[in-house]
């Protein structure tokens, strides 16, 4: 059986399901990814949200969603999905809910929640085998509060709390590996700049049961300091420099869905964003750029 109906770009939905006119910034990569994911998921969903930029999507009395929405808190969106799923299961089992009225709970959070405050709730939801989809839009910082460093902030990036000459001293946490270590049904990285890859992965995720993560790198003009119009370029460079590997985990195996060839030097990506400007001016920091390059090279050597 072929689980995909999306094979080519022209198979992608042509009109967006998610309404326009939201409070998100122009060129928001997170919103772009959400549009594409929602088009595939459809409206028989309840988005269970944690505190972050996307919380302002549902703003009384307006919502861009055709389906349902439940805001919880920064730490406990997966537990909200658990409550909804458990309740629906109980109703279905007792014949109190026609199957056509069933819904899919979709957790929607930023990286701050997914990598940090909500990680305990996430880990437990996976371990319980909760049948849910988790969509994390990763803008690599606490965007809603002004882009402070989070567990997802990459090394050397300047943030509101790492504004010094060297940027963020830490290294981005590997959420893909953390999820995969739980042996869930599915884990995939996606980016809005690669819509076909994204849509096929969401399609795969829908066809599976159990805990599933769609981890979307979400270029953020406001927090990363680039022009909104450059959104797609920044996204493509994240993939083509190998900084953001597109991959999926399924049945214990990791597959890379796009191996960048040739792999562009990382500075092609870093130099597009103000948050890395200190690596290039007033003096070029060759050592720091080389260290980032070496880390990316090491990753892809491991992929072979």
């Amino acid at each position: 059986m072929n689980e995909h109906v999306i094979h080519r770009v022209r198979d992608l939905p042509s009109a967006h399901l998610l309404g326009a006119g939201t409070a998100m910034c122009a060129g928001c990569g997170g919103l772009g990814a959400l549009h594409q994911v929602y088009d595939v998921l459809g409206e028989k969903t309840v988005f269970v949200n944690a505190a972050g930029c996307m919380t302002l999507l549902a703003n009384y009395p307006f919502t861009p969603f055709k389906g349902s929405w439940l805001y919880t808190a920064m730490a406990s969106a997966p537990a909200g999905a658990q409550g909804v799923r458990d309740a629906l299961d109980v109703l279905l089992a007792q014949g109190r809910l026609p199957p056509a009225e069933d819904l899919a709970p979709v957790v929607l959070t930023g990286d701050g929640s997914a990598y940090g405050m909500g990680l305990s709730a996430t880990s437990a939801a996976i371990e319980r085998g909760l049948d849910f989809l988790y969509l994390c839009y990763d803008n690599e910082g606490y965007g809603n509060t002004g882009q402070q460093s989070s567990g997802a902030t990459p090394h050397a990036a300047r943030t509101a709390t790492s504004a010094g000459g060297r940027g963020h001293p830490g290294f981005k946490k590997d959420l893909f590996a953390i999820w995969a270590a739980h042996a869930p049904a599915y884990v995939a990285t996606v980016i809005g700049a690669e819509p076909l890859d994204l849509a096929r992965k969401v399609e795969t995720a829908i066809g599976l049961k159990g805990p599933r993560l769609i981890l979307a790198l979400a270029p953020c003009p406001t927090g990363w300091d680039f022009e909104p119009a450059a959104l797609v370029d920044v996204g493509r460079l994240a993939v083509n420099t190998g900084i953001f590997p597109l991959k999926e985990y399924r049945d214990g195996r990791i597959t890379h869905t796009r191996i960048p060839r040739p792999r562009l030097p990382v500075e092609a990506y870093l130099s597009t964003q103000g948050r890395f400007a200190h690596l290039f001016s007033p003096r070029r920091d060759d050592a720091a750029i080389a260290a980032i390059q070496a880390q990316v090279d090491r990753y892809w050597q491991g992929v072979a």
Binding site: A81, S120, A124
Partner: peptide
Amino acid sequence: LESEHSMVTAAAAAAATG
């Protein structure tokens, strides 16, 4: 659940589901 914070979230989410 793995904490009371999650427990109360799940309780209310289930109640909101009917």
